[in-house]
Design a protein around this nucleic acid. Structure first.
Length: 288
DNA sequence: TATGTCACCTGTGGGC
DNA sequence: TGCCCACAGGTGACAT
């Protein structure tokens, strides 16, 4: 499931393979993949064709290609999205949704997405209220910087948690508060911090918030160094290769296995229509 | 306004 | 062997 480390690996691959290339033909094979592009698939293709890519950038789980037209090709990989750079003559992927020709090399950028939770859109770059001088696509102006971005403000985040009336994991998954963190790395950071996912944010001490942020950063950086987390073939880099951070997970997906700190069996609990993994001894649930 | 819930979507694996 | 169902989860729309 692409979170910040996985998206960053893809972004770096795109920077290498796509920067300086000119779009040469666009084919939208599945309209749902461009559903966020309000003007429709034809407009998506027309605004993209013949544009030259100036660079690949990212905020949280969103990444975008800067175009010489002043627009950006914005991408979110959702649950199962992949951006692959492949030779044009190579057979289409099984769940190929959008195909973007890249000149002058005989390659193409393929958006492959089994579950179609991901999407692409062409969006104008606007001035960023959060201080990014290069601008951001208008559609993601509400997305906060990620915690390994120098623009991320620890004090502002701590103050926001004090004001909120919610659980700490919900806050970590709130992309308008802190971006790039998904279910996997939220569980990992909370395990490292010894905090239960349901802990009310307003009761967290400033020191605990600081420690939690450092654990979030550590887990993201370690995952990034490992090339991301892959449970199956759904997450791959632009060359179709998987990452290795799954081996470093301490909580997520380890239901029933002993906690590496205390030996208690990791438990799985329902949370927001999904799962949350924690140690019942190291991460005490708050009193209800 | 803030917070919580649910639908969207498809492949996989377990149970029968 | 084949069918059914639960499960995986990021986001936005909608409800409270």
């Amino acid at each position: 499931m692409p979170e910040l480390p996985e998206v960053e690996v893809v972004r770096a691959g795109l920077e290498h393979w796509v920067r300086g290339r000119t779009v040469d033909g666009v084919a939208v094979l599945h309209p749902r993949s461009v559903r966020r592009h309000a003007a429709g698939a034809d407009d998506f293709s027309a605004r993209l064709d013949r544009c030259t890519v100036a660079g690949a950038r990212r905020r949280g789980k969103y990444l975008w290609l800067e175009l010489d037209s002043g627009d950006a090709l914005l991408a979110h990989l959702g649950m199962s999205g992949q951006l692959l750079v492949q030779p044009r003559e190579r057979a289409a992927e099984r769940h190929q949704r959008v195909c973007i020709g890249l000149g002058p090399a005989e390659r193409e950028l393929r958006f492959v997405d089994q579950r179609t939770f991901g999407h692409l859109m062409v969006d104008p770059l606007i001035d960023d209220a959060r201080g990014d001088s290069a601008g951001v696509p208008a559609a993601i102006g509400h997305i906060a910087p990620d915690p390994i971005d120098p623009a991320f403000d620890d004090e502002a985040f701590a103050a926001l948690l004090r004001r909120k009336r919610t659980e700490v994991k919900r806050a970590l998954l709130d992309q308008s508060a802190i971006s790039g963190v998904g279910n996997i790395y939220a569980d990992e950071a909370l395990w490292r911090a010894g905090l239960h996912w349901a802990r009310p944010t307003e009761n967290l001490r400033r020191r605990q918030v600081g420690a939690l942020l450092e654990h979030v950063r550590d887990v993201l950086r370690e995952a990034l160094a490992a090339g991301g987390t892959s449970f199956d073939s759904l997450y791959v880099n632009v060359n179709g290769e998987s990452g290795y951070f799954e081996r470093g997970l301490k909580a997520y997906g380890r239901s029933g296995q002993p906690c590496e700190r205390c030996g208690a069996p990791i438990r799985r609990e329902a949370f927001m229509n999904r799962s949350s993994y924690s140690c019942p001894r190291c991460q005490r649930a708050p009193r209800r």
